[in-house]
Every structure is written in structure tokens, then in C-alpha cells.
Simulated assay, not measured.
Amino acid sequence: MDKTENSVYLKCKDHTVSGEIFSLLWDEKYKMLRTYPAPDAEKLPAYYQSEDYISHTDSKRSLFEKVYHLVKNYALKQKLKYILSENPEKGKLLDIGAGTGDFLNVAKNDGWKVEGIEPNASARKRSAEKGIPLREHSDASFVEENISGYDVITMWHVLEHVPDLEMQLRQIKKMLKDNGTLFVAVPNFRSFDASHYGEFWAAYDVPRHLWHFSSETMTLLFEERGMKVIRKIPMKFDAFYVSLLSEKYKTGKMNFFRAFYTGWRSNQKALRSGEYSSFIYVIKQLNK
């Protein structure tokens, strides 16, 4: 493609809810993609109204969903280990986009003081049933009450969803303590599975995913704001999970063996290229 500002990188279909077609436009400044047209704030919640959106439902109707939750339980413990390796003294933790509260529940049981934010009402209800109440929004008053208030802030596959990226990054910077740590998990559109599936790559997930990042993007975004990516952690399971969904979007079937092979190839190629399907970025607050 011609990589000029706002040139069309790819056109993708919303396979989950609407069937609408969206464009992915190139952002030259941050070397990333943005979804166009982006739904306005009033219409965006409708694109999440699906039982297939399992991060909001906890559903276990199929073998795929049952396997997803088994892997998820393992991943939750791994995430906590990553946090403890950077922040061994358990303090105050904020999870933005907390879903049904599972990660906060694990962190709370480990001794962290936890808070969470989740816009989806049904997800908040499920979290509350687990003893983890969540706020709906991080409005201006909440941010002002919590300036330099958190040792750790986490966003597990959430940054790609936020409507106002600039405002979200400003809020995080305000709320994170000096030398505090931000953990951000996002897909990587530079991965092999992304190039293999193209418009059918499930991690594009338009229009719920409004922004599409690479490692270069994350370095540029946070360095500009006085923060530094100090570590990248590959999320190797994501290559398999995303490939399964991508097969379904492309062929109408999960095609477990083909998806497993593509996920395996993606991880193998990433050993040389460094471009895994998703990463957890460990980001330090350097200065206010």
C-alpha cells in the first residue's frame, strides 16, 4: 500500500454484530491504523451486544468457549506474575476495561487493593456478583481524586477499544505514581497471522477495535508522553485463539487443525521477526 496519511490499508467487515464494512486508515505519525468511520459514542455500545463477545458474558456454551476460559484462567495467573516481577510490594491497582472482574478478583485475593472501570453494564453486573464492584467511567472527577494514586494500572486488550485515545493516555499518566507501572496488552497487526488472514484477521475486530498497534506504535505513543516501554512479553496463546476466529470468519468453520497450524507458524516466525500476534507492554512512568 501507499503509506501516506489516511491512505486505506485494508477494508474489513464486522463479523460479530452488524456486517458493516470499515476502512483501516494509516496514521503516519504513530505508524498505526485507525478504524474509519468510527461509530459515535451513542452508537458504539450497540456493537458490543452479542453473546459471542465472551469477555462480557462469561459464557461457556461451546468447546471453543470452554477452552478459552481454561486458557484465560492460566493467563490471569501469568499476568499477576508479570506485575509482581516489576512491583513486588503489593499496592493499589486499577484495571481499566475490567470486563467481568476476573483479573481483579485474582489480584484482590493476592493482597492488592483493587479498583476497576468497565463501561458495559452486563459485565459490571457479573463482576459485582463476584464481589468486585466496578465504576462505569473514569470521568474528570475520578481522575482528579486519584492523581498519582496507583502503583499499577492495567489494560488487558482494552486500549484498542477506547474512543478518545489521547484523553485516555493523559488520564493514565495523571493517575499513575512516579515510577509506577502500566501494563498494556494489545494485538500486533505486524504479526504473521495478521498478514496471513488479511481482512479476516479476527484481531482487527472492527468497529470495536478503533486503533491497531505495532511495537513501533507503542514506543512512539508513550515516549512522547514521558513514559517508556521497558519490556515486551509475547502472548503466544493469542496466535491460536485469533487464528480460530479468523478461520471462522474466512470459511464459516473453526477449522481447528488449520488454525492451530497457522498459530504455530505465527509463533515460529516471530522467533526470528519478533512480531508475535499480541504483546503485553510493560511501561514505566518517568516524569509528570
Rank of each mutant, 00 (worst) to 15 (best):
L244A: 11
F260Q: 07
K253R: 05
S243A: 15
L245I: 10
G252E: 04
Y249F: 15
F260L: 15
G263T: 08
S266D: 13
Y261G: 01
K248M: 09
T251S: 10
E247Y: 01
E247W: 01
V242N: 10
G252N: 02
K248Y: 12
N267F: 13
K269I: 15
G263F: 05
S273E: 10
S266P: 05
R258F: 04
K250Q: 12
M254K: 03
K253D: 12
A270D: 05
R258A: 13
R258L: 11
R258S: 12
K269M: 14
S243V: 02
T251Q: 03
S266F: 09
Y261F: 12
Y241T: 14
F240Y: 15
V242L: 13
R265I: 04
N267R: 09
A270H: 08
Y261C: 08
F240R: 03
N255F: 02
W264R: 14
K250T: 07
G252H: 03
F240K: 08
K269D: 03
R265N: 10
R258K: 15
L245G: 01
Y249H: 15
F260A: 15
K269S: 06
L245C: 06
S246H: 01
R272V: 09
S246G: 00
G263M: 09
K248Q: 07
Q268P: 00
T262L: 02
S273W: 07
W264N: 06
G252I: 03
Y261P: 00
Y249S: 09
S246N: 03
L245M: 11
R265C: 10
K269N: 06
T262R: 13
L244S: 07
R272T: 02
S246Y: 01
A270S: 11
Y249P: 11
K253L: 10
R265T: 06
A270M: 10
